[in-house]
Amino acid sequence: RKESAFKSMLKQAAPPIELDAVWEDIRERFVKEPAFEDITLESERKRIFKDFMHVLEHEC
C-alpha cells in the first residue's frame, strides 16, 4: 500500500527523523523518493507524517 511505503521511507530515513521534526523542514529530503511521489496530496503526506511521529513518540 502507498501509505505503508511512505511510512517505510520515513522510518528508513538517514539520518533518522528526530522527535521534534516538522514536516516542512524535512519534506525536501524525500521529494525525489517514489513513495513520496505516489502520495499526490500534500495533506495526505502530512497526515501520514503525523501518524508516523505519533508512533515514534510512543516507541521512546
Rank of each mutant, 00 (worst) to 15 (best):
W23R: 01
Q12K: 08
S4R: 14
K7H: 06
F6M: 04
E57Y: 11
L19F: 08
D25S: 08
L19N: 10
R1T: 15
M9C: 02
E44C: 06
E37T: 13
K46T: 06
K32Y: 06
D38A: 15
Q12W: 04
W23T: 02
E18N: 10
D25M: 06
V31H: 07
D25A: 09
P16Q: 07
T40M: 11
K50P: 00
R45C: 00
E28R: 10
A13Q: 04
K2C: 01
D51Q: 13
S4F: 15
T40A: 15
S43P: 06
V31A: 12
Q12Y: 07
A13W: 03
S43F: 09
C60W: 15
A21D: 15
R47C: 04
K46E: 12
D25F: 04
V55N: 06
K46L: 06
V22Y: 05
H54G: 14
P16R: 09
A21L: 04
W23A: 01
V55Q: 09
R27E: 04
L19W: 10
K2T: 06
D20M: 10
R1P: 15
K7R: 07
M53D: 02
I48Y: 09
R47S: 12
R47K: 08
A13D: 00
E3D: 04
I39Q: 01
K50A: 10
A5R: 15
R47E: 10
I39M: 07
K2R: 13
S43Y: 03
D51M: 05
E33F: 13
L41N: 13
P15R: 03
H54N: 11
P34R: 14
W23V: 02
Q12C: 07
I48K: 02
R47G: 07
R47L: 06
D51G: 08
K7D: 06
L10N: 01
D20T: 06
A5S: 15
V22P: 05
M9D: 00
A13I: 06
P16L: 05
D51C: 08
Q12V: 07
A5H: 15
R47Y: 04
A21V: 10
E37L: 14
P16V: 07
K2A: 04
E57T: 11
A13C: 09
M9F: 01
D38C: 14
E28C: 11
K50S: 14
F36G: 01
A35M: 05
S43E: 10
E57A: 13
H58G: 13
K32N: 06
D38H: 10
P16D: 06
T40W: 07
E44L: 04
L41Y: 15
S43C: 06
A14T: 12
S4Y: 15
F49W: 07
A14F: 11
L10T: 00
A5L: 15
D25L: 07
A35S: 09
A35H: 04
L19V: 14
A13S: 08
V31N: 10
K7Q: 11
P16E: 07
E37V: 13
E42G: 02
E33N: 08
R47V: 06
T40R: 12
L56C: 09
A5Y: 12
V55W: 11
F49I: 00
K11E: 12
Q12F: 07
E18Q: 05
D38T: 07
F49S: 01
I39N: 00
E57G: 11
P34H: 06
A21M: 08
K11T: 11
T40N: 06
M53L: 13
A35I: 09
E3H: 02
A5I: 12
H54I: 13
H58M: 12
K32T: 13
V22A: 09
S8M: 14
A5Q: 15
V31P: 00
R1A: 07
F30S: 00
F30L: 06
E33P: 02
E24K: 08
M53F: 02
I48F: 05
D51R: 06
I39Y: 03
F6Q: 01
R45Y: 00
D20A: 11
K11I: 07
L56S: 10
E57L: 07
V22D: 10
F36V: 01
K32M: 10
F36D: 00
I26N: 06
